[in-house]
Design a protein around this nucleic acid. Sequence first.
DNA 1: TCTAAAGCTGACCGATCGGTCAGGATTTTA
DNA 2: TAAAATCCTGACCGATCGGTCAGCTTTAGA
Lengths: 229, 229
Amino acid sequence: MNRVVSPGARKFSLIDVRKESVVNHDLSEATVRERNELRIHDAAENIFARHGYRGASIQAIAAAAGLPKSNVLYYVGSKRRLYITLLERTMWRWNEMLSDISVDDDPAEVLEAFIRSKMRLSQTHPQSSRLFANEILQGAPFLKESLFGDMQEWMEARTQVFRQWAERGLMDPVDPVWLIFLIWSATQHYADFETQIVGITHREKLGDEDFRSASDFLCQVIIKGCGAR
Amino acid sequence: MNRVVSPGARKFSLIDVRKESVVNHDLSEATVRERNELRIHDAAENIFARHGYRGASIQAIAAAAGLPKSNVLYYVGSKRRLYITLLERTMWRWNEMLSDISVDDDPAEVLEAFIRSKMRLSQTHPQSSRLFANEILQGAPFLKESLFGDMQEWMEARTQVFRQWAERGLMDPVDPVWLIFLIWSATQHYADFETQIVGITHREKLGDEDFRSASDFLCQVIIKGCGAR
DNA sequence: TCTAAAGCTGACCGATCGGTCAGGATTTTA
DNA sequence: TAAAATCCTGACCGATCGGTCAGCTTTAGA
């Protein structure tokens, strides 16, 4: 699985964007390119997350990044390429989750780890989550082909383990697909719908304590609810 | 609370849009205006749901409705007004839910009714749900003031009942706010993220049987999870 | 110090945006 | 059947869209 070099040739791939997300955040000794691409990606993730692909404008992204529009295009090539780069980054972060799950693990522990790591992502990378949500709401035009292959594999590997746990009587015989979507949706909600939560519950924003207590709640209810532990 | 007549004066309200949603679907004896507004609203809900406020174009809405752009603007006045009309319709549908909840009811029954009616909305009005999701992702610029007032009241009335149930030992002492958001997110997911669910689970689209089994699953896990029944 | 590469940007392109409007077609009412 | 109200739409407006490009400045390497 080697890196495809010519960026024009490939429409899109989900591999090897690791460097992207581990990019040096110490700007003091980053190259000019690294520093500016980081600013652009941060700004673009915000704008795309709020307004979706069509609703986002390069002008707005440039303004948020504090750069001229021409300069943004100099670095990212096109709106499409920028958007796909950010989508790839998000997908990679998610697909590495629950990567080492085994039938011999304790269901409750695995569920708890899954819920908490997903909540941590909602707290630390809410914009990524919203970007993804927007892509799905659009009908997943960019992810249609490639995403669903990867995610089908991810899903099947996990559901198989869940099913075996149920057979061994370690948890209730619930549909593992619905269970995973339950965890997915409940945790994602704290990123995607933060505005609503904050607005309804009189908060200024969601803080560490909110995420802690919400995580505790979800672990408790979901683990008990499917009879693990 | 009487209806404000001049549409230019009011920025926005969440009252008395009932007629909108109960509009006669038998087109045979509807007026020209009713018939065309229905077509426009349906088309607009689709486009706004996919692309958000900025990403949606009147041109695209007009094409989906099978009308010239000028004609759409003749009926709806402006993009902003059209969008707000659709938002109001959605908010009204949701706020009437669980309207007659009481401390003397059975928690499990109420939770089940809530989950199932919310799932029914996800199935019958997925576009409304996606429209709302898009509005929240944007930061709720149109709902900011008015929505959150109504929803705060709604939330406080329900959480109070939940808290009393917990005091009476009818369910676990879980945070009722997190519980409501759990149900909210889990049920909404089947509308907002249908594309993802369909793509991952090899389905063509979500059918009656899918919604039935998913509803059963959610009722079972959530009710058991918070110790009701 | 000279040169090549990289960084940068204002001006500009055709397309599309939301919205207006004059004026014709059609329907309702008196 | 005449007048009034409603319905309808092509042409057009200034603004903004994504993207290109010539030509400038700055940096890196020999």
